[in-house]
């Protein structure tokens, strides 16, 4: 099986970062022929300084920090997987790094995308659509009333 890649690595990592621990754990528990994994760094929790831009598009400034957890894992087959995600969930960071490593294997990429990443991406997109629809319902529709008819 050598399906075409549906996502870039960045896209895959972005989906992994926003998925829930439960989804990742279920996917990993159900994964047959798990490769050995060796933690090279972390999972460790720290902070990223978040920057904004003056006026929205000008010079950068430091807005404030956010909790971040990251992990680096080497698979038994040699791939090195990374994760860096908002929050303090070390187990989620470890699993996200493992899946990033697995995604790099031609033999596993198609399966990870079809079984895990694309369904997750669709759920996230659906949640965004709901927010947009809820927000759209609060859009103001102006209509003009003619007053003080002097003609």
């Amino acid at each position: 099986m050598n399906r075409e890649t549906a996502m870039t690595r960045q896209e895959a990592m972005a989906v992994l970062a926003r998925s829930s621990l439960e989804k990742l754990r279920a996917a990993w528990d159900g994964w047959d022929s798990k490769p050995a994994t060796e933690l090279l760094r972390g999972p460790e929790t720290g902070m990223i300084m978040i920057r904004g831009r003056t006026g929205g598009s000008g010079a950068p400034f430091n807005l404030g920090e956010a909790s971040v957890t990251r992990a680096t894992v080497r698979l038994g087959t040699g791939e090195v997987g990374f994760s860096c995600i908002l929050g303090r969930d070390t187990e989620k960071a470890r699993l996200a790094a493992i899946f990033d490593g697995l995604w790099q294997r031609d033999g596993d990429r198609g399966r990870i995308e079809q079984d895990l990443l694309l369904p997750l991406a669709e759920r996230l997109a659906a949640a965004d659509r709901t927010v947009r629809a809820q927000t759209a319902a609060t859009q103001v529709n102006f209509f003009t009333m003619v007053r003080g008819d002097d003609e």
Binding site: G46, I48, M49, I50, R51, G52, P60, V68, C84
Partner: peptide
Amino acid sequence: RFGFSEPL
């Protein structure tokens, strides 16, 4: 601190 984000 691990680093900085790109500006939002």
